[in-house]
Amino acid sequence: MKTELNITLIARGCAITGDMVVDHGISSFGLLDGGIISTQGLLHIGEGGLVKGSAQGEHVRIDGRVDGDVHARGSLEINGQVSGDIFYCGTIRLGPRASLNGTLKRVC
């Protein structure tokens, strides 16, 4: 059985206005003025990436910045900045550059 890897890439210099919903992984290094939901896989906000809205995913890694709530159903890793409430169910890891402005709640 062949497994297909699907990842959407939002490159630096790209700006998207509106909400995004994907059924696979996504890696964003650009600007997203709206919410983002990844129903499965990795939701990655890369260094220099900015989300002005909520971010929700199975596995979430934030190396950039999110100005909104973050929801992680599985693992959560933060090395960047979050200004909003964080809701997680699995594991959480805060890196040395993590900056949080909001509440941290475990919900399962």
Rank of each mutant, 00 (worst) to 15 (best):
residue 83 S to P: 01
residue 82 V to K: 01
residue 100 L to Y: 07
residue 24 H to D: 04
residue 68 G to H: 05
residue 5 L to Q: 11
residue 100 L to Q: 03
residue 38 S to E: 05
residue 45 I to C: 00
residue 25 G to P: 10
residue 14 C to M: 13
residue 44 H to I: 02
residue 79 N to H: 14
residue 37 I to V: 15
residue 38 S to D: 03
residue 36 I to A: 08
residue 69 D to C: 05
residue 2 K to W: 04
residue 77 E to N: 08
residue 37 I to L: 13
residue 62 I to V: 10
residue 37 I to Y: 09
residue 94 L to H: 10
residue 5 L to K: 14
residue 17 T to L: 08
residue 85 D to P: 07
residue 54 S to F: 10
residue 33 D to R: 13
residue 2 K to V: 12
residue 38 S to T: 14
residue 39 T to G: 04
residue 28 S to G: 11
residue 40 Q to K: 15
residue 17 T to C: 07
residue 71 H to Y: 12
residue 101 N to G: 06
residue 2 K to R: 13
residue 99 S to N: 12
residue 84 G to K: 05
residue 23 D to P: 09
residue 30 G to F: 00
residue 49 G to S: 01
residue 26 I to S: 09
residue 76 L to M: 09
residue 7 I to K: 11
residue 83 S to K: 14
residue 3 T to F: 04
residue 5 L to C: 04
residue 85 D to G: 10
residue 26 I to Y: 03
residue 65 R to T: 04
residue 57 G to Q: 03
residue 72 A to L: 02
residue 108 C to F: 14
residue 53 G to Y: 07
residue 33 D to G: 03
residue 17 T to K: 13
residue 32 L to Q: 02
residue 88 Y to Q: 12
residue 26 I to V: 11
residue 80 G to H: 01
residue 26 I to L: 15
residue 12 R to L: 05
residue 12 R to P: 08
residue 38 S to G: 14
residue 66 V to L: 05
residue 87 F to W: 12
residue 52 K to D: 01
residue 31 L to M: 12
residue 37 I to W: 05
residue 32 L to D: 00
residue 30 G to P: 04
residue 77 E to K: 13
residue 107 V to T: 15
residue 16 I to W: 05
residue 80 G to K: 06
residue 54 S to K: 13
residue 80 G to N: 00
residue 2 K to C: 05
residue 10 I to D: 00
residue 10 I to S: 02
residue 10 I to R: 02
residue 78 I to A: 00
residue 23 D to L: 07
residue 13 G to K: 09
residue 92 I to P: 10
residue 15 A to K: 13
residue 51 V to M: 06
residue 76 L to K: 12
residue 103 T to V: 12
residue 81 Q to M: 08
residue 68 G to N: 04
residue 50 L to H: 06
residue 53 G to R: 03
residue 66 V to S: 00
residue 36 I to R: 05
residue 57 G to H: 07
residue 103 T to G: 13
residue 18 G to I: 05
residue 94 L to T: 02
residue 45 I to M: 04
residue 43 L to M: 11
residue 99 S to T: 09
residue 105 K to N: 14
residue 71 H to G: 07
residue 49 G to N: 01
residue 11 A to F: 02
residue 95 G to H: 11
residue 103 T to D: 11
residue 92 I to E: 06
residue 71 H to C: 06
residue 7 I to H: 02
residue 96 P to D: 15
residue 38 S to M: 11
residue 10 I to Q: 01
